[in-house]
Design a protein around this nucleic acid. Structure first.
Lengths: 133, 133
DNA sequence: GTAGACCTTGACGTCTGCGTCAACGCCAGG
DNA sequence: CCTGGCGTTGACGCAGACGTCAAGGTCTAC
């Protein structure tokens, strides 16, 4: 199949596929007219890349998975290098989540403090609105 | 004080200060020689910006805080617009944390599955190492 | 034969927060 | 006077994953 069809089937763009090729992932055969020619295996490679991208893996991190598939394995994560990437990503995610939770707590504390200060600063300001009248 | 001193006192660089100025934050008076001239109030502005930056706020988000300080308030978060930024950031952090936790769970599941598959694929491979011998 | 849909490569634009020159002005010390 | 250390503006570089345009070749249908 040609690049447009592959892009559509994978839910991406031709630009993206050319970009992946320029990065050394997803090589393509060429037809007599110079057009790129892909097969079903390429579609699977591409799907693997896309899944990882959706997880927030950067392109370099997908390389071991692609290599693994190209080596003939039926899954991109059937190789040790891929598992290492998984583990590194887990550690990275854990660190990132912890950091964001810390920040969240600090921001929440700041907000609470500032809200209290605002209440104090406007004496009688936001007092009960639902007082019957 | 001049730009180098302010940068050093705030733990940042002169480039950063000029960048903030170009973004409309942190305006500076100019001396007769064209040198920027800052005072203690500017240091406080800068500290406010840096705190928020460390929290992962982008520069635009710091603007309400800066405006608030410039308006004469003794805290950057003494104005409603700043509180709105806090609240928006909390929502953003919550969404981001939730997303990352989902991804973490999916990656962990993939890793577990792939590890099991690897064990099955190498029969008698990683069998108990700590068997007494 | 010509319109239109597809393909090719090349190269610049995007977004953010600066880093890193380049080329120059200003000022104090020896 | 010269050197060194500060300051000035302007402008390009980077990282990531492409978007978007330009200028052209190719193939199909009418």
């Amino acid at each position: 199949m040609r690049i447009g069809e592959l892009a559509e089937r994978a839910g991406t763009t031709t630009r993206t596929l050319r970009y992946y090729e320029s990065r050394g992932l997803l090589a393509a055969r060429r037809g007599a007219n110079g057009y790129r020619d892909y097969d079903e295996a390429d579609l699977r490679l591409l799907e693997q890349i896309r899944v990882l991208q959706d997880f927030g893996f950067d392109l370099e991190d997908t390389r071991p998975f692609v290599d693994c598939l190209r080596a003939g394995h039926d899954a991109g994560d059937a190789c040790p290098a891929s598992l290492d990437v998984y583990r590194a990503k887990l550690a990275e995610l854990d660190a990132c989540i912890a950091r964001m939770q810390d920040v969240r707590a600090e921001v929440a504390a700041q907000l609470a403090r500032a809200e209290v200060a605002a209440d104090a600063g406007i004496p009688g300001g936001p007092d009960p609105k639902c007082h019957l009248s």
